[in-house]
Design a protein around this nucleic acid. Structure first.
Length: 428
RNA sequence: GUGGCUAUGGUGUAAUGGCAGCACGAAAGAUUGUGGUUCUUUUAGUACGGGUUCGAAUCCCGUUAGCCACCCCA
């Protein structure tokens, strides 16, 4: 492996069934997002650095050390989509055109983390944002939507975890109480939590250290609703949302210790995890960010959204999906027939048949092997004698039956014998 | 970003510091016009750069990459 180029650390190539699955997940997601009334937007990979510093939060790891910055300019590769969508929304003064919008986006995000399974430096998000309503029905729609997408790609093994951080006031009040309380118990907390306590106190809540957990439990007092810390209105919204999820038979786990790392989250937060994934087990997450638009210089408009990690979905699914197979592999019995073979393949493709042929000058036997390897339903064999009589041979690769068909009747034969739409074609 | 583990043909794996082997895959053939089974042949490797040693896949150092945990997050 000398003098070879290799991929950049933390980036991955998708091929074979992974590439197929990657495309399938994206296509199915788009279909469902559109059916929920979300409009696709395609945004650039490059943004101003300040957008994320302001939007995601100065103290977050993402902003502090994970952004890929273009040397000498205030430009970064986007680390996440929400702040970007809000930038797009404000830049185009959409708040003046309509009071409510629903968007979705798909594409690569970049964070300079140390790679491990399920954690890449270039990874792909499927995200949705609904801007302009504080209705708990919208929270429910967002949750329902993210679960529907996972259903559609066949991901059944998952957990939905929910919490509410409350409005900005509630959140600040809660952080104040938490900080005051934990400062007193500081000596029992781990080293990391000492740092968290100053930088991002909410993070202490999801520390995995056993002693820290004990301290937090004694502070929280309650297990289900964080009612002690939410104002009546936020608590009402939270209760209503949960009631609605019950009505919709959506299963969830309430976890008062669920916090999201990005500064902009308020009120409802949720996370979808998979048991298959190890430490990086969140395949999707989201929540409300009622303060973000204002903090980015816009009016005070509420919003809610989520993002799914495509690579993590693929990991959770395993690579069991079937790749599309070929309808017909064209085989020629001699080099002199290559041109006829090439022309027939072209005719087949124009008629919508998935067809291919050998380009390496293989023997008849070699071509037949290739037909099998490509999982062709039929081999269309072009022989000297048959062609002289104006016909070709169709060999069914499953039952080995062979039929002579007139050269002019090839497309008719396909029409009768190939099951269109069953496989080999996009099912979306 | 921190700590730990790992790195042998395309893939999966062997080799007390002493000839790098096996399986699968791939290519060609056994059958002068036909795939799957079988058989034959061919194919290709010690991640990279140093060091110790008569001799290194094996020991040491560095680099790179992957994995695990932390951290963080989707």
């Amino acid at each position: 492996m000398k003098n070879m180029y290799s991929s950049i650390r933390g980036t991955s190539d998708f091929d074979g069934s992974d590439a197929f699955l990657f495309g399938k997940v994206n296509l199915k997601s788009k279909f469902i997002l559109k059916s929920f009334g979300y409009e696709e937007i395609i945004l650039p990979l490059l943004e101003e650095e300040g957008l994320f510093a302001k939007g995601v939060g100065q103290g977050t790891d993402i902003v502090e050390r994970q952004m890929f910055k273009i040397e000498g300019k205030d430009i970064v590769l986007r680390p996440e989509g929400t702040a970007q969508v809000v930038r797009y929304y404000l830049q185009n003064s959409l708040n003046k055109k309509s009071d409510f919008y629903k968007f979705f986006y798909t594409g690569a995000m970049f964070r300079g983390e140390r790679p491990q399974k399920g954690r890449l430096r270039q990874f792909h998000h499927i995200g949705a944002e609904a801007i302009g309503s504080n209705s708990f029905y919208l929270d429910a729609e967002i949750i329902d939507l993210s679960l529907k997408i996972l259903d559609s790609v066949g991901l059944k093994e998952r957990k939905l975890i929910i919490n509410s951080l409350g409005c900005k006031k509630d959140k600040d009040k809660f952080i104040g109480l938490l900080k005051a309380d934990l400062d007193k118990r500081k000596k029992y907390l781990c080293e990391d939590c000492h740092i968290r306590l100053n930088k991002n106190p909410l993070r202490v809540l999801d520390c995995k250290n056993e002693e820290c957990r004990k301290q937090i439990k004694s502070f929280m007092k309650i297990d289900s609703y964080p009612q002690d810390y939410l104002c009546p209105r936020c608590f009402d919204d939270y209760k209503n949302l949960i009631g609605l999820l019950d009505d919709l038979s959506i299963k969830y786990i309430l976890d008062p210790c669920l916090v999201r790392g990005l500064d902009y989250y308020t009120n409802t937060v949720f996370e979808i995890t998979s048991l298959e994934l190890g430490a990086q087990n969140a395949i999707g997450a989201g929540g409300r960010y009622n303060g973000l638009i204002k903090s980015l210089g816009g009016p005070d408009i509420p919003a809610v959204g989520f993002a799914l990690g495509v690579e993590r979905i693929l990991l959770a699914l395993g690579s069991t999906s079937l790749e599309p197979a070929l309808d017909i592999f064209v085989v020629v019995s001699g080099r002199s027939l290559e041109k006829v073979g090439f022309q027939i393949v072209r005719e087949l493709r124009e008629a919508g048949v998935n067809a291919d042929l050998d380009f390496c000058g293989k023997s008849l036997k070699g071509q037949m092997r290739l037909a099998q390897k490509k999982k062709a339903s039929f081999a269309l064999i072009i022989g000297e004698q048959e062609l002289a009589q104006g016909s070709v041979l169709f060999k069914n690769m499953v039952n080995s039956q062979q039929e002579k068909v007139a050269r002019s009747g090839i497309l008719d034969y396909c029409e009768k014998n190939i099951i269109f739409g069953e496989r080999g074609r996009c099912q979306c």
